[in-house]
Simulated assay, not measured.
Amino acid sequence: MDFETLITLTTGITVLTCGLAVAGLHAYAAGRAQRQALVDRLAATGQIAPVGRRRRFGDLDRRLRRTKLGRKLELRLLATGLDVTPGEFFVYMLTAVAGLWLVGQATLAPFFGPIAGMLGIWAAVQFLNWQRQKRIERFINQLPELARILANATQAGLALRTAIGMAAEELEAPAGEELAKVANQLALGASMDDALGELADRLPSRELVVLVTTLVLSNRAGGQVVSALRNLTETLEERKETRREIRTQLSQVSMTSYAVPALGIGSLFLMNGVKDGALDRMTGSPAGQVAVIVAFVLYAIGFVMIRRLSRIDV
């Protein structure tokens, strides 16, 4: 093989290698773009956690999602609108439980360590319930405007699917985010009944159930959807004002329900501060431990009863 042939062969191999490299980069970029589009679509429909930041504890999160508890936790987190995966929330909760366990054991007595840990789990569950309820309340307050937008869009001759997408763009969170999930599910081929039914399951409320039922029946059987939405808008406005008045009247009762157990926990710190080691001696006997457990149970019953009595369904 002479020198010129070697140069030609080398040049050909180099050109072929560069061509393959360019084709590989193009295929990689196209695949990455398709993957990102799929991830965005699945995140919008709530099938995976929303993207936007680097997720921690990925292995734990995948294993937790396979369990029944993990799936329930994932649905609860989706309803709260928090940008947290089930694995992250589980680790954060365990960290808080461990911290409260150590604080209760160090400041009060070793017996109060497990109790403080259980209070940490209860506090985490209550935090999720509070976030979920706050999101539901905000969504309910947006329902009159949502019904008005849907009525105007359908009166203009737009299909219900298009009207939902328009409402998702015009409304702020949480209504805009939830309707965007519904619109994406409809774009992926889900039926109107299933998409709206999942919305009602994520944010359960009587007002939303009435709106979903109206939309589903109108989409299934036809009829005067505009007049139904107009009447529903007026009804939702009245219910919104009624709920606001009831919530204002019962705000003091709600604060009392949290003040009762707080006074009980504060009395423990006061008792231990007045006489150092009093709780250690009290919980050193079985009778003292039983008395503490009974007291905590009574405080919990008082909290639940006050919350039940102050709950008025409108």
Rank of each mutant, 00 (worst) to 15 (best):
D313Q: 09
A259K: 08
G288L: 01
A124H: 04
A116L: 06
S285N: 15
I48S: 00
L270Q: 04
L196T: 13
S218W: 01
V225K: 04
A180V: 06
L108I: 04
A30N: 02
T235K: 03
A195G: 06
S227R: 14
G284H: 02
E241W: 10
A156E: 02
A183V: 02
P114L: 05
I149G: 03
A228L: 07
Q36Y: 03
A106F: 11
V290F: 10
M271V: 09
M192P: 08
G31Y: 07
T95Q: 11
I7W: 03
K275T: 07
A221R: 08
L102A: 14
L186F: 02
A98I: 12
G266Q: 06
L69V: 13
E169H: 15
A221K: 06
L150K: 01
V253C: 14
P174A: 00
A195L: 08
G31N: 07
D59F: 12
L100H: 05
P50C: 05
L94I: 15
T17H: 07
D201Y: 01
A33N: 07
E198C: 03
Q142Y: 05
L77E: 08
L102D: 02
V260D: 01
F111G: 10
A33G: 04
K275E: 08
A29K: 13
S267I: 12
Y28A: 13
L20A: 12
A147Y: 12
V39A: 13
V290Y: 06
K181G: 15
C18R: 07
